[in-house]
């Protein structure tokens, strides 16, 4: 039994359409790529697709109501849904520091979610304890 994967390579602007045949967790044929980078891309995309996720979390007492966050490292693609739900449930209190850890171990991936920017507290706003 083999599975066929069709991918668009993102290694360069060329955007090769790569067709791979996979059998028992191994690529047994690859077509359409024009360079070695395409092969590496296909390898990663098929066996361990990873993504950095970026979103926002709610902030109390900040100059803005939300602060942008990112996963410090890429996380497995199939964890995105759970990670986004965890992020949606969080509220932090201003001030927020640059790269402050917002969630230490998002979706059990071992990767932390950090703030992408510092966010000051609103003048005359709620003071934190």
């Amino acid at each position: 039994m083999s599975t066929i994967y069709e991918l668009t390579c993102i290694a360069c602007p060329m955007g090769c359409q790569i067709k791979t045949k996979v059998q028992q967790d191994k690529i047994i044929s690859i077509k359409g790529n024009s360079c070695k980078r395409g092969e590496l891309y296909a390898q990663d995309e098929i066996f361990r697709p990873m993504r950095v996720i970026t979103s926002t979390v709610r902030v109390q007492g900040g100059v803005l109501p939300v602060v942008p966050v990112r996963t410090a490292e890429p996380i497995p693609k199939d964890k995105i849904g759970v990670a986004l739900q965890e992020i949606a449930c969080i509220t932090v209190t201003a001030p927020v520091k640059f790269h402050q850890v917002i969630v230490p171990n998002i979706a059990d991936t071992g990767v932390s979610v950090v703030a992408s920017r510092p966010l000051a507290a609103k003048e005359g706003g709620e003071k934190t304890a």
Partner: peptide
């Protein structure tokens, strides 16, 4: 709404 987010991902 966000509960359904990323379910296709």
């Amino acid at each position: 709404a966000v509960k359904g987010a990323g379910k296709d991902a």
